[in-house]
Design a protein around this nucleic acid. Structure first.
Lengths: 148, 148
DNA sequence: GCAAGAAGGATGTATATGCAGCCTTTGCGG
DNA sequence: CCGCAAAGGCTGCATATACATCCTTCTTGC
């Protein structure tokens, strides 16, 4: 009883579980940040670049565990809106350095309170212990998978 | 010292961490399943439908925590390849019922060993305790977010 | 110096995902 | 029956994401 493998083993697919949770959580963040005109991805990007100045596509992709070619695409909308700019690096013309513009910094600052709120709302919705546990677990996993 | 908030608070964005980990993990699964001609999403979809027979778009979307309109799109490639079919429900012509075809079942069976392997490889790469911890944490979070 | 190979990105192509708005079919009142 | 609101999906539009492949620019060995 207790419906042992009623769903087969694939109910236990880690990838599926991650994707499900990510969909839901991303949705929350996207909706919360929408009034500020940013998606969750774009917010992260701006946040990152606000702290570290010019960064090459490749380096940025590494930090975000993202394929560089994906990053190129993701940057496009932000470029068009002049929230950041991409320019050929002086010392190596193969490289492109990405930098936030003043407009980008402003957009980021305006989105920040919304980010804080949704982050808090999620913690609240999940319950702090569960939320902390999740974050800890994600960090552990990420550390392990990037240790290579 | 210990670079307190050198990265600001947003290094702690749950959404970002989830997305990073999901990117990496999805990549592993996609590569593992590619020789079988399926993506991780498609595999999950077939797995799900293999167990539960005909299911409406909406019901399926609910289970996958996915927007129904996204699901419509995601089904398309599988439909074109005849791995599943979508048909108007008899009793309610608004509804569309999705069902796996024989070809779909076959594709799924052939992908199964690959899924098992990548799942095991990931557990190995992360270390069993961490892997179990992650899965448990994801389940907890999902349960909490769907309890509403 | 120069040619071969490596490094860094950009493009073509394909899937994944969500929202707003639209169409069709049901269900319900009256 | 009729009309209207609700239910269930689909389309247009936009972002997110990856892989194979190609172009450009450095590096290096000789």
């Amino acid at each position: 009883m207790s419906k042992p493998k009623a769903e087969g083993q694939w109910g236990r697919c880690t990838c599926l579980r991650l994707r499900k949770l990510t969909r839901r959580v991303t949705q929350m963040y996207d909706q919360a940040l929408a009034p500020a005109g940013l998606t969750s991805s774009q917010f992260s990007l701006l946040a990152f670049l606000s702290v570290r100045g010019d960064t090459s596509i490749g380096a940025l992709a590494d930090e975000l565990l993202m394929d560089p070619t994906s990053l190129t695409r993701t940057l496009r909308p932000l470029e068009k809106r002049r929230l950041l700019k991409v320019a050929v690096a002086r010392d190596d013309r193969r490289r492109r350095d990405v930098a936030v513009t003043e407009a980008g910094r402003t957009a980021f600052r305006e989105a920040l309170p919304r980010w804080r709120k949704v982050q808090a709302d999620l913690a609240d919705l999940m319950g702090s212990p569960r939320f902390d546990e999740l974050n800890r677990s994600l960090d552990d996993s990420l550390r392990q998978l990037t240790a290579s």
